[in-house]
Design a protein around this nucleic acid. Sequence first.
DNA 1: CTTACGGCCTGGGTGC
DNA 2: TGCACCCAGGCCGTAA
Length: 258
Amino acid sequence: MEVRLGKTDFIEDPAAIERELTGSWISAVRRHGKFVVLDLKSGNGANESRTLLIHLGMTGQIRTCPPEEPIAPHTHVFVSLDDGREMRYTDIRRFGKIRLLEDGGPEDTLGKLGLDPTEVNEKEFVARLATRRARVKALLLDQRVLRGMGNIYTDESLWRARIHPRRLGANISKVELHRLYLAIRSVLAEAIRLRGSSISDYVDAEGNRGEFQLRHRVYQREGKECSRCRSVIRREIVAGRSSYFCPRCQPQPRKRLT
DNA sequence: CTTACGGCCTGGGTGC
DNA sequence: TGCACCCAGGCCGTAA
């Protein structure tokens, strides 16, 4: 691989990226929570393990294309691959992050993350929430509790499970937690199958838009009817985030905490 | 320790 | 035409 960089203020150590990627191979591409993980193998046969972490933030895109393809605005990383294609990182807002982990270095970024919601079993899931007095919305967004959930899938899951985002973890019944567990798994499975939610400009590595936004029941649907009960969808700030919910399907917790 | 909250980063969209 | 403002996700500092 060969690397060219544009703006680098979202890259932890740009010099290290240039140095370590050049001449290396990508031996695997994985996902860990919201991180795209590229496992690197050096071309000279040395055996040190280096890993490239890419967080797309809100507007980050990783694409591969022929090198002669016109360069989209806000493209800041160009990697020439040995098969002739070019891998490009584009990020309008630069809320994304790129970081190189060297050889067993401090693995704090990934090590602090919670369980993968697509793999966690119900018992572990319940244990993670039922002992907490924070709002369920904050807990689901907390990457140390579960890794990978963002605002969209949190709201959609809470709607499916009929749980108000302001409920406290410890106040949610086992029956409700069971519903939430199933809701999260079904929402994520469906969203992955439909290649994600293209609200503004999200695309996958081939440039395809996702289609899960067509299935959103609450997210960005303030003022529209709930498809289950016809009440009007509301938006409130919960845990510092816009939160969309149905006030009838997802009843307010008794205690008012504003 | 846990929880809540405000501020910061950036730039497209919106509304005046 | 210009411009102030909002908002997004993650993270950090601070306070209770």
